[in-house]
């Protein structure tokens, strides 16, 4: 049995189709990433799966329980960390944790081994009000509270948005550790570079799933030639490259631009066409998740 199974799930808000017939399944113990920008439908999907919303069409199960019919059972089996900080700012760290334990009919002691690797970072501040914590500490408290009842499936909605690169990396380390304890994790993120931390990812945009696979298999499917180009005037290089023969597109990519080409493209001819550019370099480069996302979005 899959931990999460989703079948043609749809949800609209007025005229906006937030989620348009989405189908996929998540294996038990998998760390599954939903990767996409604002408006992709990530939050709506999480709210449906945690039984906070009902779907317009389609169905889904968590551990075999139906999200509409068995919502009560599901609520005690899932942990949910919303994108916005949703703990009680006027309660202390310790009070928040005890409160969530009481709601689920457990004690902090029973689950301490599970939350310890995360909670130990904020335990020295246990008498501080949650509203007075820094962003990174709030995130750790929210994760501790979401884990207090030993959920079978954990939903994390953009847990790393607005967090700096070092803390983001530490957070993913914590998730990898939770995975070893058998918890199934679905995490959403707008950061493409976090894809490699997941077992499998779904690339999503505007309520649709563009592709689902392991991060490696997603980039393996990239079927155009891709080059990294540089020159002294990077802005003009962009414009000129777009007009060159055999170029499908050209876009900024870090310190280089990426050049996507078709069979009409000829390296020497390209260099001739851009002969006016000083220090022009062009080298083949490996596609990343982001290159694939751009390609799929334009389709």
């Amino acid at each position: 049995m899959y931990a999460v199974e989703i079948n043609s799930l749809s949800k609209s808000f007025g005229k906006t189709k937030a989620l348009d017939s989405v189908t996929f399944a998540v294996e038990r113990g998998e760390l599954f990433g939903l990767i996409g920008p604002d408006g992709a439908g990530k939050t709506t999907l999480f709210r449906l799966l945690t039984t906070l919303l009902n779907p317009d069409n389609g169905s889904a199960t968590i551990d075999g329980f139906d999200i509409v019919k068995d919502y009560h059972t599901i609520r005690s089996r899932v942990g949910y960390m919303p994108g916005r900080f949703s703990l009680y700012p006027d309660l202390t760290v310790e009070e928040n944790l005890n409160f969530f334990a009481a709601l689920f009919g457990v004690t902090v002691e029973e689950s301490y081994d599970l939350i310890a690797p995360i909670y130990s970072h904020i335990e020295p501040f246990r008498t501080r009000r949650a509203g007075k914590l820094s962003g990174g500490m709030k995130q750790k408290l929210a994760l501790s509270c979401a884990l207090i009842h030993r959920p079978s499936v954990l939903f994390l909605d953009e847990p790393t948005t607005g967090v700096d690169a070092v803390s983001r990396c530490e957070f993913w380390d914590m998730l990898s550790e939770l995975k070893t304890k058998g918890i199934t994790i679905l995490a959403s993120t707008p950061y493409m570079d976090e894809a490699s931390r997941c077992d499998r990812i779904a690339l999503c945009d505007k309520g649709h799933i563009l592709d689902i696979n392991t991060p490696q298999d997603i980039v393996n499917k990239y079927d155009s030639n891709l080059y990294a180009i540089n020159a002294d005037n990077m802005f003009n290089l962009l414009e000129a490259s777009r007009k060159a023969t055999g170029v499908i597109e050209c876009y900024p990519f870090g310190e280089s631009h990426h050049l996507v080409t078709n069979e009409e493209f000829d390296l020497n001819h390209y260099k001739e066409e851009l002969g006016d550019f000083k220090n022009l370099t062009i080298t083949p480069t490996a596609p990343t998740i982001e290159d694939m996302f751009i390609k799929l979005m334009k389709r």
Binding site: G36, P37, D38, A40, T161, G162, P190, M192, D205, F235, L238, Y251, P252, E290, F293, I294, M297, K298
Partner: peptide, 13 residues
């Protein structure tokens, strides 16, 4: 923050 990779690139342009 939060925009898709195509829009993010248009912004950088």
């Amino acid at each position: 923050g939060g925009v898709d990779p195509v829009t993010r690139r248009q912004f950088w342009e």
